[in-house]
């Protein structure tokens, strides 16, 4: 479930990157972040499948729920990392402009 959610996040981020108007949002970093995690979880899934065989595809509902919760948390963490980096690097100069203003 975690793998699936991360793959969907990676695909959505990549489609958004492909349709970008400019590079100011640095969406490429988000794509690499999610694809890197997806590849690593894919390897983890292969090893788990070798160990569990068909049982791998019939997880307990509680495990599935926990994995889904984890997957969503991972996606949120990825977004936070990307957002913090975007605000720090400030490619559009929006943060600098806001900080130089006397009032928000």
């Amino acid at each position: 479930m975690t793998l699936l959610i991360t793959v969907f996040a990676a695909v959505i981020a990549t489609v958004k990157w492909y349709n970008r108007k400019d590079d100011s949002m640095r969406l490429g970093i988000l794509c690499f972040l999610y694809w890197g995690a997806s590849i690593m979880w894919f390897v983890d899934a292969i090893f788990e499948y070798i160990e569990l065989q068909a049982e791998y595809f019939t997880p307990a509902p509680v495990d599935m729920l926990n994995d889904a919760f984890l997957g969503l948390s991972v996606v949120a963490l990825g977004l936070i990392i990307w957002l913090v980096r975007l605000l720090i690097t400030d490619p559009k100069g929006s943060v600098k402009m806001a900080l130089r203003k006397k009032q928000l």
């Binding site: 991360t6 490429g28 970093i29 690499f32 972040l33 890197g36 995690a37 590849i39 984890l70 990825g78």
Partner: peptide, 14 residues
Amino acid sequence: TYMLWGGAVLLAFE
């Protein structure tokens, strides 16, 4: 580096 760091950080969270 982005793929490796991204994967490592998100897996560390797991």
